[in-house]
Nucleic acid binder design. Structure first.
Lengths: 209, 209
DNA sequence: ATAAATATGAACAAAGTTTCACAATCGAAA
DNA sequence: TTTCGATTGTGAAACTTTGTTCATATTTAT
């Protein structure tokens, strides 16, 4: 009898759900209506048993003999992941990277709406950026509290990242996507995900001759 | 008796080494000369035992009672990861993302030199981009083979990514950093790492109230 | 010199994750 | 209606990863 209520699902399982969701999107776009754990596993390079076991944490979404209805499974996964609604996201840092993130359409498309941008450089404050006005860091507290924003992206230099994170957490942010190449120290109720492309590159060179 | 020779080290261990290296860099920059598994663990939120165990796969780099000499350990980790030299990298895709990647200084700084850029859009080919000239995809084979390039980044739309990957692999690339939001099908001798920021965001919303 | 404190590396134990294997179920076809 | 092939969901087994403990080595303080 599986349950949706924090059954203490392993984090590694949660980490695979967005990948399943992305593959299902693609299958649906390509006109498929049903799929199977075997087919999904083929696409993703994961065993079919693992996919079935992962999904079974949240309920029986498939039909024996048939497989999974793609749109139904997508809907269920969106519910589980809480991405069946729009999330407002604060962006801190309006340098090259911050600017690129503000312009990237993929966030809004998939439910994450960047809704304010902060920087502390005088020459950037007040400038328009893809529909926003870059705000001073001083305004971070007011803006984020007023909108009850819970998610943020950090795109500032490494030496400023911890301080920015502390500020964000103090005003209620609970999930941070950190592009600064540094580990953040955060309390346990705050989630952090890291993106540092060099780390990924260094992880691959080990296997090269 | 630990060995550097592919002792079949778990990939998860390899994945942590770049993170150790990044933290060591930072400690060195801050003027530290030695550290301990305990201190590193504090910084990274990892147990000290795990750090010692990970490192012991490659040799005894520390001194009992003292800890680890930072520059020595950095050098050893660079050797293990094969990042104690410069790697040439091909970039495919000169759109917004590709352009941002070409301009990002962090790759060259840490040993990954983007040394050619490809796109198939007529209006981009021949244009200068941070010191390179954007080349047509037709020239991919000649250029990559001539320079014996083994690493590439894919920054093209999802629908083109698999085809690009196939081309790259055919001409000798063995490690791919894929920014397209799609899983690539590759032979076992090729490593792929994925960067899709939305996936990271979706992984965090599960834990939000 | 000696004792106390610190820290590694290795062996062992515990916890967590993945795979296996199969009963139960479904839909289609004879 | 019965049979057949396909496919799920799941408990048990196998495997991987993490954490604990301890013998030993080094440094520092007395």
């Amino acid at each position: 009898m599986p349950s949706n209520l924090s059954d203490n699902i392993p984090d590694i399982v949660i980490g695979r759900l967005p990948i399943y969701l992305r593959a299902l999107n693609r299958l649906a776009q390509d006109g498929h209506e049903v799929t199977s754990s075997h087919e999904l596993g083929q696409i993703l390079g994961i065993s079919s048993a693992q996919i079935r076991k992962d999904l079974s944490h949240f309920g029986g979404f498939g039909k024996q003999g048939t497989g999974y209805q793609i749109v139904f499974l997508e809907e269920k996964l969106r519910q589980v992941l809480k991405v069946n609604r729009e999330w407002e996201v604060a962006l801190v840092g309006a340098g090259d990277l911050g600017t690129a993130l503000a312009h990237y359409g993929g966030f809004a498309e998939r439910g994450f709406k960047i809704s304010c941008v902060f920087d502390n450089a005088k020459e950037k404050i007040g400038k328009p950026l893809n529909g926003f006005t870059v705000q001073a860091l001083d305004e971070l507290e007011t803006t984020i509290k007023a909108r009850a924003i819970k998610m943020a992206m950090i795109a500032v230099p490494a030496k400023a990242a911890q301080e920015v994170a502390d500020k964000l957490i103090a005003v209620g942010v609970r999930a941070i996507l950190n592009y600064a190449p540094i580990n953040l120290n955060v309390p346990p109720e705050v989630r952090v995900q890291y993106i540092d492309p060099v780390i990924h590159m260094q992880r691959m060179t080990f296997y090269l001759p």
